[in-house]
Simulated scan of single mutants.
Amino acid sequence: MGPMRSALTIFWLGTKELRSVLRDTVMLGLVIYSFSLAILMQAQSSSQEVRNASVGIVDEDRSALSRRIAGAFLPPVFRRPQPLAERDIVPAMNAGRYALVLDIPPNFERDLLDRRPAALQLDIDATAMVQAGLGASYAQQIILEEISGFLARAGRAGPAPVTLASRVAYNPNTETPWFTSVMGIINNVTMLAIILAGAAIVREREHGTLDHLLVMPVRPFEIAMAKVWANGAVILVAVAASVEIVVRRLLHVPIAGSVPLFLTGTAVYLFFATAVGLFLGTLARSMPQLGLLYLLVYLPLAMLSGSNTPLESMPAWLARILQASPTVHYVAFAQAILYRGAGFGVVWPRLVLIALMGGLFLVLALRRFRLAADAAARG
């Protein structure tokens, strides 16, 4: 009878908490915005692909090969190359009119056919970092392919000693929204779970209802778990809607694995994140204090989770320490399921570690609850 009574208490306290969250229009609006417009804007405004890069071309050769090279720069990666005089290269680059300027010298085609050394000049505006890096790489690949094809037709090309075949897995076109949309959802799960759970405690304290709860015949564990499931349920529903509506339908990102398995893992991670929020809520005496504590916790969790930069690019000692971070394991869990189609047998160790860390923070939060309950009883 004891466990059943405790479960019912948790359920009814949770429904009270759920009503409180749904009545808080500001917080509810933040949840809806974070999993809808915020994901769309993050996915579509932070693209790392080259799009519509402006190209100028100085064609001093005026040969079939030079025209072939100019015609190979096609939308949507590049704009149609614009003819340019050599004397105008520096002024045009200084004015920011072109991201790339290709200078084809006189007799370029003839030198290649006669097997004499030939050189091209590619000027790059490096103030646009994506276009300077990827755009220059694309341009070089286009030029080399056109030259190789031209020489092969002319019977002047020798066989290549090595043929390199590249295959891009899981994201064949390397489209940024496929990555940023899912990572945005993951970061927002962490952010909102901590904020909602922490704010629930601070709000109870500011309204004076926390002291009433602590002197009632309910245990701190029941109060904490009610807030965990109620706030976690709101975020879980928002995540499910965001994956289906925003990621799948609006951004057209294919999901390789099981969405129910992803949501199950998200529920486990929400247990950890809401437990952290509860712990911070027991430390903070006001909303401003909670905001400061939140920044100290959330920023390292998000920045060092692997959602922005891979762990392999971090110092080895830091990457080893971060193996204890549940956020790192949640990011790896989500990528394995949604991108690579992994099953439960692959990801269950990460779920166990996340659950254990969530249990640790729940214990810390309960200790703080008990201290507050003792103080309320003495008062």
Results as ranks from 00 to 15, higher is better:
150 F>Y: 15
188 N>I: 03
193 A>V: 09
227 K>Y: 05
223 I>F: 00
162 V>C: 01
164 L>D: 09
193 A>W: 09
208 G>T: 07
177 P>F: 01
187 N>P: 00
206 E>I: 05
168 V>R: 12
202 V>G: 10
234 V>I: 14
244 E>F: 02
230 A>H: 10
161 P>E: 10
163 T>Q: 15
166 S>A: 14
241 A>G: 15
251 L>F: 12
173 N>C: 00
150 F>N: 12
236 L>T: 03
247 V>E: 02
260 P>V: 08
214 L>M: 07
230 A>Q: 10
213 L>H: 11
255 I>A: 00
217 P>F: 12
190 T>H: 06
201 I>L: 12
200 A>V: 06
175 E>Q: 00
151 L>G: 14
230 A>L: 09
241 A>L: 15
233 A>P: 08
211 D>K: 11
211 D>T: 10
175 E>M: 01
186 I>S: 08
255 I>H: 00
231 N>G: 03
231 N>P: 03
159 P>H: 07
159 P>F: 05
149 G>H: 11
249 R>P: 00
254 P>C: 01
252 H>Q: 14
216 M>H: 13
175 E>C: 00
177 P>A: 02
242 S>L: 05
176 T>N: 04
258 S>E: 06
165 A>P: 06
179 F>W: 06
259 V>A: 13
185 I>K: 07
158 G>S: 13
158 G>N: 10
230 A>V: 08
157 A>Y: 11
193 A>L: 13
175 E>K: 01
165 A>M: 09
245 I>E: 03
172 P>I: 05
159 P>L: 09
155 G>I: 13
176 T>Q: 04
231 N>E: 05
191 M>V: 11
239 V>K: 09
163 T>F: 07
170 Y>C: 07
249 R>L: 03
187 N>K: 02
246 V>K: 04
170 Y>D: 10
160 A>L: 10
165 A>T: 14
237 V>D: 06
169 A>S: 09
153 R>N: 12
195 I>D: 04
162 V>A: 04
194 I>S: 12
212 H>D: 01
212 H>L: 06
212 H>V: 07
194 I>P: 11
243 V>G: 02
260 P>I: 07
226 A>P: 03
255 I>Q: 00
176 T>W: 02
203 R>E: 12
173 N>Q: 11
160 A>Y: 02
178 W>S: 09
174 T>I: 13
240 A>G: 10
225 M>G: 03
210 L>N: 15
245 I>A: 06
219 R>D: 12
154 A>Q: 15
250 L>Q: 15
249 R>N: 01
212 H>S: 04
177 P>C: 01
227 K>H: 08
170 Y>R: 06
190 T>I: 11
206 E>R: 08
186 I>V: 15
161 P>Q: 12
256 A>Y: 01
240 A>C: 02
252 H>N: 13
205 R>G: 10
194 I>Y: 10
180 T>A: 04
253 V>Q: 04
216 M>T: 15
219 R>H: 15
167 R>H: 07
238 A>R: 02
216 M>K: 14
160 A>G: 05
217 P>I: 12
224 A>S: 12
